[in-house]
Design a binder for these strands. Structure first.
Lengths: 148, 148
DNA sequence: GTTAATGCAAACAGTTTGCAAACGG
DNA sequence: CCGTTTGCAAACTGTTTGCATTAAC
């Protein structure tokens, strides 16, 4: 059983994990959404009201540089952070609720690699953002109004 | 032969096209890169040194709201603008040169639609950003060093 | 003990906004 | 004319940085 927490991974990457950094790590770890720096700051402050926003930003930067977390924009100007999971995934943003859903599709990754290769490139990483709204009826099983 | 310039399209969308706005339109039209607001401002100033950056931003906003241009981030915090072409396309960013290449792949679009549909969503728009570096040898026709 | 990390506040970049003057139909 | 757009400067947001203080090996 390997060490799993973000703080552990940071230590494994020989990043010095101070109490403040550990706190930021824990907040990011615990988040199942994609919090902004500000949201991370707020959540961290609940446990340590003395933590500074600058420390949050600096920690996020350190973790990002260590490739332990990723910063994403999703069109807005605010950075949103998420721990790197082992498998790559992409995002679908519900335009109505703002909810961000994750998905992974092997074919998609493969296709992107192939396209890049055809252009003479080797993919370092990629990012697919799908802005969508809920379909009127659920995916396969349509309910009522079968008509046209 | 339909009207084709961005300014014409703006007029067609009943956006008031003042000389300043026309200028911004022309700059965006003429750009074959993905200029930032600042770059657009600089280019516009060459023809009208009195134009204000605020006007550039306001015009870009108007055009964006009118769905005539798109704003993209590409990871940096600066917005980059491009006229909507008729066909959707995605972007490959050369990590070494910073160059932004466009590509279109029908299969990719279809696959994304399919994935979204499986999640119960209808795609409004999407955006694929591929960060890549040049492959050592060209796509199909490899030159020299055939070995290994 | 010296190097690195923190908190604070000030700086910064990109973008937006209030307002009076100029413009356009 | 009257509403819209402009230019200017100031405000604003998200993020970074300088610096003195504090903490960690």
């Amino acid at each position: 059983m390997t060490a799993c927490s973000l703080a552990d991974k940071a230590r494994a990457s020989s990043i010095r994990v101070t109490p403040q950094r550990a706190l930021v790590c824990d907040v990011v770890d615990a988040a199942d959404d994609h919090p902004t720096a500000d949201e991370i700051y707020e959540r961290a402050r609940e446990l340590d009201p003395t933590i500074a926003i600058a420390t949050v930003y600096r920690t996020l930067k350190v973790l990002e540089d260590g490739e332990l977390i990723a910063r994403r924009d999703f069109g807005t100007r605010k950075g949103r952070y998420e721990a790197f999971s082992d498998e790559h995934h992409d995002h679908l943003i519900d335009q109505d609720s703002g909810e961000i859903l994750e998905f992974y599709n092997e074919q998609l990754d493969a296709l992107i690699c192939k396209i890049a290769a055809e252009m003479g490139y080797k993919v370092a990483h990629h990012q697919v953002e799908v802005y969508a709204e809920k379909a009127d009826q659920p995916p396969k099983i349509r309910k009522r109004r079968s008509a046209r």
